[in-house]
Measured scan of single mutants.
Amino acid sequence: YKIYPYDSLIVTNSISVKLPKDVDRTRLERHLSPEEFQEVFGMSIEEFDRLALWKRNDLKKKALLF
């Protein structure tokens, strides 16, 4: 996945969300650098992957990456 800054990946309720063209809309968190991922989620990507799907989705919603 290509890395993008968190600010360019957050999704708000506005209709005209302009995400970069090559971003996987269903896995926005994968486009964060490991350092920024840790900062946003408070855990590593590996720890995040071990969580239940509902928990990952809940965290993504709170981080505006859903």
Rank of each mutant, 00 (worst) to 15 (best):
R56D: 01
S44P: 14
K2D: 09
F37T: 02
S44C: 13
S8E: 14
A63G: 04
T12R: 11
S14C: 15
R30L: 07
K18F: 07
T26F: 14
L65A: 01
V17E: 14
F41I: 04
N57W: 07
A63T: 06
I45C: 07
K61I: 10
S44G: 12
I45G: 06
K55T: 10
T26K: 10
I15L: 13
D24L: 05
V23G: 02
S14E: 15
L9M: 04
L51C: 05
D22P: 03
R27Y: 07
L59Q: 03
K60P: 00
I15V: 14
R50A: 12
E29A: 01
L32I: 07
K21A: 15
V11M: 11
F66S: 08
L64F: 11
D24N: 07
Y1D: 08
V40C: 05
L53Y: 09
Q38Y: 14
I45M: 09
P5Y: 03
L64C: 12
K21C: 13
K18I: 11
F66K: 04
T26G: 10
R56L: 02
P5N: 05
S33P: 03
V40Y: 06
L9Q: 00
L9N: 00
Y4C: 03
A63D: 01
I45S: 07
E36Y: 02
L51I: 06
R30A: 07
K55P: 03
V23M: 04
L53V: 11
G42A: 11
D7M: 15
R50V: 12
L65S: 01
L51Y: 05
F41W: 01
S33C: 07
K61D: 05
Y6A: 02
F66I: 09
Y4H: 04
P20I: 05
G42F: 09
T26Y: 12
V23T: 05
E39N: 12
V23E: 02
P20Q: 05
K18L: 12
N57G: 05
P20R: 04
N13W: 04
K21H: 14
R50Q: 13
F41R: 00
S16L: 12
L32K: 00
L51D: 02
R50K: 14
R27S: 09
W54L: 08
G42C: 10
K60N: 01
K61A: 08
R25L: 13
D49N: 09
I3K: 07
K62Y: 06
V17H: 14
F48E: 00
H31R: 02
S44L: 11
L28R: 05
L53A: 10
K61M: 10
L59E: 03
E47D: 11
S14Q: 13
S44E: 10
Y6H: 02
E29K: 01
W54M: 08
V40I: 10
R30T: 03
L32G: 00
Q38L: 14
V17W: 03
E46P: 08
